[in-house]
Design a protein around this nucleic acid. Structure first.
Lengths: 210, 210
DNA sequence: TAGATTGTTAATCGATTAACAATC
DNA sequence: TAGATTGTTAATCGATTAACAATC
């Protein structure tokens, strides 16, 4: 499959398809159609078909897609097949939760280590080290890390971000509720709890009024 | 300010404005213009102006918005002024991290308690109770809970969701990497780590190729 | 063959951006 | 008054949806 430019909207839907396809029990649904996928996920079938067409050319009229093949195509497209190394800064509760979450491997993410101003102890239960923030520079030099995860309190997020970029980080996954100023070639992905909460509470307010 | 219908895109940007406005030190910037806000957040000034116009009518030509007033208007619009009670199911690492996160109060969210098949201990360090899942029904009956937070492993997410809905939950905040089937009047907000990761790893792949 | 499903081309919809008049 | 900023109206852009021909 030739790699095309893909819109962010499509990109964001792909993990959903992948998760569903992988959740199907082995043996069932050797072939799956865009229609079936759409129904299962409560989406429009045309949208699903178009999305799939962008990442795979294994679709066959009347039959659909070979599930295994489709999983492979999407995974590959998303880069889940080659792992990305990341470091995490801010080993509070959320930071440690992420550090200990084993599910990221499936997405090709490998958190090498965490850093904090007050490292709680040498190792977590999961065997991943939490270093003093002062060792950030050395660590980045010796490992080739491209992704940084920020889980420090909001007021420190920007300075941590700057420091990560100085050390060669190209993509920042930001869990702090703060806006980060970065150069053009750096991507910041905000994991924005506040955004989600806004959508939720808006829905609840509408509910209550009824 | 009359309450208008608002698009989801606008709604999702509001928490960002609010966070920035609140982060400004007291005393500075009594008045702030849409232009200034846009520059600070790296956004288009027209977009910010249009967004603000939908939630506040305190904007004055040449001067801008009274910051305090704007904070109030956005907070009120987002429903951050009246708290929403929520319960959380799945007291694993992520669940406990959320349970202990004190920052939610600022967003009007109050997590009353958590439930799990194996409650680790009676109370967390933060004083919030973790009950056995069997007590879910009773708890929901006695408290009027409208929001449920799901932090169980993916294979259990749907059944937990169904159970929450049976007990009167109207909005679900889903941290499990699973698609949830719900009736029309129920809102599911997926906190989709996989989505964020997809965007990030796509950026990194593009970087590497350069 | 008939029919389901694919992929493509055109139409619609919504959101963003641009242009401009109103205001302090 | 002059100029910055607001809010509104029109134009553009992108994404979604609909219609349809191609295919197994």
């Amino acid at each position: 499959m030739e790699r095309k430019e893909i819109s962010k909207s499509v990109l964001k839907r792909l993990p959903g398809y992948l998760a569903y396809l992988q959740s199907l029990p082995d043996g069932t649904a050797t072939y799956i159609s865009a229609t079936a996928l759409a129904n299962a996920l409560g989406m429009g079938e045309v949208q699903v078909r178009k999305d799939l067409a962008q990442v795979s050319d294994g679709g066959r009229p009347k039959i659909g897609y070979l599930r295994e093949r489709l999983i492979e195509d999407i995974s590959q497209f998303l880069g889940y097949d080659n792992t990305t190394d990341a470091i995490l800064v801010g080993a509070g509760k959320l930071g440690q939760a992420l550090l200990g979450y084993s599910g990221f491997e499936a997405y090709g993410l490998n958190i090498l280590a965490a850093f904090d101003v007050f490292p709680p102890s040498d190792k977590t239960d999961d065997g991943k080290a939490i270093y003093n923030i002062s060792e950030l520079e050395n660590f980045c030099k010796s490992h080739n890390v491209l992704m940084g995860i920020i889980t420090v309190p909001a007021p420190f997020a920007q300075q941590v971000c700057d420091r990560l970029i100085e050390n060669g980080i190209k993509a920042v996954w930001n869990f702090a509720p703060a806006h980060l100023d970065v150069p053009d070639n750096i991507l910041v992905q905000n994991e924005n709890m506040a955004t989600s909460l806004a959508v939720l509470s808006m829905h609840l307010q509408a509910q209550i009024k009824k």
